[in-house]
Amino acid sequence: MSPASVSSAPTEVHQAASIFALKKSQDLQAQSVATLLNSVATPPAASNPLHLGANVDVRA
């Protein structure tokens, strides 16, 4: 084994561990976002007549 390959081995292990940690972090964030989005309730449909609220008088 050459000295260059021995000195690069820790760097490769560190890079692999960093990539693994990054992917794990992204997976956890994706799960958190999915949970948050699923917890948001959809607003109920309006039961008002179609003409009600169509025009708003902005002058006081």
Rank of each mutant, 00 (worst) to 15 (best):
S18A: 14
P10W: 03
K24W: 05
S47R: 06
Q31I: 09
A21R: 07
H14T: 10
Q26S: 11
S7N: 07
S39Q: 10
V40N: 00
V33Y: 04
A30M: 09
N55T: 12
S32I: 07
T11N: 07
A54T: 04
P49V: 06
P43H: 04
Q26Y: 08
S7W: 03
E12L: 15
A30Y: 02
P49Y: 02
A34L: 11
P10T: 03
S8G: 00
N48M: 13
R59F: 04
A54Q: 06
A60T: 14
V33T: 03
K24V: 06
V6E: 01
T11D: 09
L36W: 12
P3E: 06
A9I: 05
L22R: 12
A17G: 07
V6Q: 00
S7C: 05
V56P: 02
H51F: 13
Q15I: 14
V56F: 08
S7M: 08
N55V: 14
A16D: 13
S5Y: 03
N38S: 08
H51L: 13
K24S: 12
N48V: 13
A9S: 08
V56C: 04
Q15E: 15
Q26T: 07
Q31C: 04
S47V: 14
G53Q: 01
A34Q: 11
P43K: 02
A41F: 04
Q29P: 00
D27Y: 11
V33C: 01
F20S: 14
V13H: 04
S25P: 02
A45M: 10
P43C: 02
A16M: 11
N38P: 01
N48E: 12
L50C: 03
L28R: 15
A46K: 07
L22I: 09
L50E: 12
I19N: 04
S47G: 15
Q31F: 09
V40E: 01
Q15S: 13
A45G: 05
T35C: 01
V40A: 02
D57M: 12
M1H: 10
V58M: 12
A41Y: 04
A16I: 06
P43A: 12
S8Y: 00
K23F: 08
L37H: 06
P43V: 09
V33M: 04
T11V: 15
S8E: 02
G53R: 01
A17W: 10
A9P: 01
V58S: 10
A45S: 13
S47I: 10
V56D: 05
N55M: 11
S47P: 02
T35E: 09
A34I: 09
P44L: 03
H14V: 02
T35Y: 04
P44I: 10
